[in-house]
């Protein structure tokens, strides 16, 4: 009876996340208006049959903007995580397997980077690099690297001691071959699990950066920036729909990723199931 529950979480998570991905991919079909279309006669309208999520300043259709924003936010988050893995995974494999001073230096360096709250670091680096989608991906990706390095490194260090790795060594494989053939595959499970969780963090970070005005440049739609825009309007005229819906979109996406991450973690590491 226990296993079924995890499958249920995984299915719900995948369905929800798949839904958001579909929204992003088919945005032009789903959105009923051009997200950048200005319609001065229809500003700040509450949700209605014509404008499901209402309208914002300049008569922007909030529904269309939330739909199109999924493209930016998901693209940024997924690319950033891919970047984190592309950098973090090999480094983790290498320092975990080789050890020595390279390992110590890398770990001290990570200590320094992780001494900064992720958001503060991202703000600083982004301010230095300048705004734009490419730089957002770069910054969020870099901020996520230490997590993967640490994770993979820990995994490698425990795998190194395993019997089948010993066996591979005994058969006379070279060090690099052992790393690639025997150890690297064993780290994939944890990396995939973390990827889902990290993707959630990346969306939250992208939205936070957008919220303080360092995200995707306006007037392109982005969830965090839409919330920022909406708060003053909400206070002035009570148009709650402007900031509320983008937040719901963020919450759904990150929630689905957490569900996926949790259930995959249980699948990958069966021993953890017992403790629940």
């Amino acid at each position: 009876m226990t296993t079924r529950r995890y499958d249920a979480r995984l299915v719900i998570g995948l369905v929800m996340f798949g839904f958001m991905v579909a929204v992003a991919v088919f945005a032009p079909v789903i959105a009923r208006n051009d997200p950048l279309a200005i319609d001065m006669g229809n500003q700040f309208l509450p949700p209605s049959a014509d404008h499901w999520f209402g309208t914002a300043r300049l008569g922007f259709d909030v529904f269309s903007r939330v739909v199109y924003a999924a493209r930016h936010d998901l693209l940024i988050a997924v690319s950033a995580v891919v970047l984190s893995i592309a950098i973090g995974h090999p480094i983790g494999l290498l320092v975990g397997y080789v050890g020595g001073w390279g390992d110590s230096v890398t770990m001290r360096f990570l200590d320094v980077i992780q001494a900064f709250p992720a958001l503060v670091l991202a703000i600083g680096v982004l301010a230095a690099l300048g705004q734009g989608v490419r730089n957002l991906i770069l910054v969020i990706g870099i901020v996520g690297v230490p997590t993967f390095v640490r994770l993979v490194r820990a995994e490698v260090r425990s795998l190194r001691e395993h019997a089948y790795v010993e066996a591979g060594r005994a058969v006379g494989n070279s060090r690099s071959k052992i790393l690639v053939r025997y150890i690297a595959p064993g780290t994939v499970g944890t990396v995939v699990t973390q990827a889902a969780v990290s993707c959630g963090w990346a969306i939250l970070l992208a939205a936070a950066l957008g919220f303080i005005g360092l995200g995707v440049p306006l007037p392109e739609p982005e969830w965090g920036a839409m919330i920022a825009e909406g708060i003053p309007e909400m206070r002035r005229g009570g148009s709650w729909w402007i900031p509320v819906f983008p937040g719901v979109a963020i919450a759904i996406t990150v929630f689905s990723l957490s569900l996926i991450g949790e259930s995959v973690a249980d699948l990958v590491e069966p021993t953890r199931r017992k403790s629940r």
Binding site: G200, L204, A207, A208, G247, T253
Partner: peptide, 8 residues
């Protein structure tokens, strides 16, 4: 809880 942005 972890899915809801604090500023939202």
């Amino acid at each position: 809880g972890v899915a809801v942005p604090d500023f939202w």
